[in-house]
Design a binder for these strands. Structure first.
Lengths: 309, 309
DNA sequence: CTGAAAGCGCTTACAG
DNA sequence: CTGAAAGCGCTTACAG
């Protein structure tokens, strides 16, 4: 077995030669087509096995209609936020007969090379090889800045953020802390602005600050960077003997379904990820058909008041 | 724009003709290569834009070394179990310079067509087009049955299951219910066997049976089909005024990280998904290099006794 | 700076 | 049942 260890992979010609037939006949055997002598087929398949022959996707794709491939760049799939988005994209793409090649921002493969179009959270991998694609249609989700010619799904967060802040203010919150990453994110900035507008001056801390440190500021509300962070805070607060929402209120961002299952159920800023996925896919299809106008779609967050506020 | 609405997509020849240059020059312009008159480049790019030209992956792949593509078939990505596995596969594949095209079992795209090798939970999509692949290396994870020539990652669950059952028995459990899907799954069967061996006769109910119905049998332990189901049960039990683990003990299967964050923390049968991913990837690489022996790897579950038992 | 030729690996009619 | 020829869309030397 494995007769071609170092050199190039076996091609249809190698198999044909080894089996003493034409390329044509190799194709027939490989694809189980009719009109071939069973013994010939066996001989060809044996040769193929022997040479570890696998038909080239490229030779085949050039000559047969093939599924389009969509590149999808997400963050850590371990975060249900990205997983849920990816899940919807996968389903909708399959409905259209598209394949999806996926990449996580941190490992950042060159999606562009294997795709006919790209959708992704480019904020995670700015100007990566991914976006240097040769003329591919690209749709960016919640992008940090505009990129001419690219489609864009923008998140409208101001309204829902104000709602959340109003909810907190009405509940008596006076000393909120906004947990954000360094170099304020759009989500963090939206909360800061909303608090200021509501006459509250929020402290801003790095999202990874442990509760033990946060406690010194005696906050009565914590705005987590995302739901996952919020789950961690909920745990830390419980461990620290604090009651949520009575002692401290906690709000997340993302609207993960699993937020229903934690205790207390997490209040959060949700976005309809299925709608994001659907919109992004529609847009990328329009782009690949040559559309060059109306490239921006806006999707609103909404405030889900559950039990943690 | 979009001058080629109905007919076939524009090729390099169309662009060359439109711009009045050779195909060669089109390549140079598209890939920003040196040795081309800037004005010529502009003219070519304009023509390309005008014709909505995107270079064919296939033409290109045939002639330039391209990344290998791995097909990955999982269940619902919305289940963190699959998401975590996919995440590791994505990372490891990227390290090797492979692309990954993903599919969910329910939408079941034809992964085979676009892949050089396949990894997947074939129990979810048996004998789908996916596995009818023309001679692709295939690794099946926790497969329901053997498939000659395919690699196989088997889960060893008997040991950990016995441990879990022993733990329950020692805690005084006498009336366990095993929640399984119709036509017992390996995981369900393992629990049933272990309970019987321990001298306990478990009831078996469909995994979707609501607690309200289960309650009639006055169980003192519930074995959920998976962690996600277990989270739901935990909620139902709380809603029903039952205390876990005092009134009813609950054990899940999968070992999701988020099980740490629910209340009470979920006891579960965990499997090291990163190891599963790593092993599957190693195996599929061996297969694609022509290996035909030693195609089975076994990975053990382990019992994570947390707070729900 | 630009182009004519060859070739990548496959499949599809078409002959025999 | 089997094979010789043409062609899919691209890039890589090589000439000019």
């Amino acid at each position: 077995m494995n007769h071609n260890p170092s050199a190039r992979a076996a091609t249809i010609v190698d198999v044909a030669r080894a089996a003493g037939v034409s390329r044509q006949t190799v194709t027939r055997a490989m694809h189980d087509m009719p009109g071939i002598n069973p013994q010939t087929r066996e001989r060809v398949l044996a040769a193929a096995r022997d040479l570890n022959y696998h038909p080239s996707r490229f030779g085949r794709g050039l000559v047969k209609p093939a599924a389009k491939t969509l590149g999808l760049l997400v963050g850590d799939l371990t975060n249900p936020y990205y997983a849920e988005l990816a899940s919807t994209v996968l389903r909708l793409a399959a409905e259209r007969g598209w394949n999806v090649v996926m990449g996580e921002a941190d490992s950042a493969p060159d999606l562009a090379g294997g795709s006919d179009a790209l959708i992704g959270f480019t904020g995670l991998a700015l100007d990566s090889p991914t976006t240097g694609a040769p003329n591919l249609p690209v749709v960016e989700i919640d992008p940090p800045r505009e990129h001419p010619g690219h489609g864009r799904i923008e998140f409208e967060r101001a309204t829902a953020t104000r709602e959340a802040v109003e909810h907190l203010r009405a509940a008596g919150v006076r000393r909120p802390i906004v947990l954000d990453r360094l170099g304020p994110s759009p989500r963090g900035q939206a909360f800061i602005d909303a608090f200021l507008d509501a006459g509250l001056e929020p402290l801003v801390r790095d999202r990874t600050t442990p509760w033990s440190e946060l406690a010194a500021d005696r906050p009565d509300a914590l705005v987590a960077f995302n739901d996952l962070d919020a789950f961690g805070l909920l745990n830390d607060l419980r461990a620290g003997g604090l009651k949520v929402p009575d002692d401290v209120r906690v709000v997340g961002v993302d609207g993960l379904a699993v937020g229903e299952f934690v205790t207390p159920r997490l209040s959060t800023l949700a976005i309809d990820l299925a709608e994001v996925a659907r919109t992004a896919l529609d847009l990328v299809v329009e782009l690949s058909q040559g559309s060059t106008t109306d490239l921006v779609r806006v999707i609103p967050h909404r405030f889900l008041a559950r039990d943690s506020t």
